[in-house]
Design a protein around this nucleic acid. Structure first.
Lengths: 154, 154
DNA sequence: CGCGGTGGGTTCCCTCAAGGAACTCACCCT
DNA sequence: AGGGTGAGTTCCTTGAGGGAACCCACCGCG
């Protein structure tokens, strides 16, 4: 009996979830994004077991989201960096953090702030239409079948 | 031995992952977003076991993301609708779909297209700074400690 | 009434992934 | 040799998902 194979679903969301559809991978990705890149640093920051961390890092590298890079030759030492694919996946973390800030922070307020380098302000990201520039939240979107949609029978 | 409690982490991403940190909840949310709202419809669309669907729907309702609503009195029949909190969480699905389209579609192209209701065009959502309006992707963000950050020792 | 269909859920058994702890290995320095 | 660091592996247990069977309420029809 196998786990559901999300990679084969005709749905981009499911295919993304195939890469990061459990909590640790996004959190590891977040660590690498903010500069926490070495095995023992990530492990200490997240409090994750070394076994799971090893597996997740390997998985994220295979998925082309992280790349392993040697930072020391003697002794041999590696760290993990974002690929271009991984950097774009971090955009998802931005939105994820925004939702958590808004709905799950409690009285203490958000644990992290996002300063936009371009304008220098503490800000947050909004979804905007690439075509017209107006807000493009989920509620403004009609979801239509695309070229890769499953046949109607599916 | 307990599972890691992501809700208690001083990290908005982890707190969001506490709600949707497995594949089914985001996919159920997607279904409700696009209008697939009834138990048997969701079950058929996702090919998920009734047991897991029952559990996930209950969880999402408890998390305040979905609400159960009666659409028929005799016989009693319910469907699920997005709460305001859930609608904002769907913004995450928009970004998630975008990443999957770009990096995981293959030759067939994206399975779904997003038409922006405001301008009527097939488009996609970009991250923009709420303050200055310029692109605000993950690479343009400095992540700083916020009021709810964990003490330095942690 | 009994039967079949629909909506929705529960239980059981199995498989797979996570968690904690212990163990292992390579390398370096004293 | 011994200790420290980085990184990984193994073992056993627990928790979550998957498939199938079972269950219940309700309705309409013969």
């Amino acid at each position: 009996m196998q786990r559901t194979n999300f990679a084969d679903m005709a749905c981009s969301i499911a295919r993304t979830l195939d890469v990061i559809g459990e909590p640790w991978s996004p959190l590891i990705l977040r660590d690498v994004w903010v500069g926490i890149r070495r095995f023992d640093e990530i492990q200490a920051d997240l409090g994750i077991s070394r076994k799971v961390l090893t597996e997740r890092l390997k998985w994220l590298a295979e998925a082309g989201v992280l790349a392993r890079r040697e930072y020391s030759r003697r002794p041999p030492r590696s760290e993990y960096v974002l690929t271009a694919r991984g950097a774009e996946l971090c955009d998802l973390l931005v939105v994820m953090a925004g939702w958590g800030d808004r709905w799950r922070s409690g009285a203490a307020g958000p644990p992290a702030l996002h300063r936009h380098r371009t304008c220098g302000e503490i800000s947050h990201a909004e979804l905007r239409c690439a075509h017209c520039g107006a807000p493009m939240t989920a509620g403004t979107i009609d979801v239509l079948p695309g070229p890769g949609a499953a046949p109607s029978g599916g």
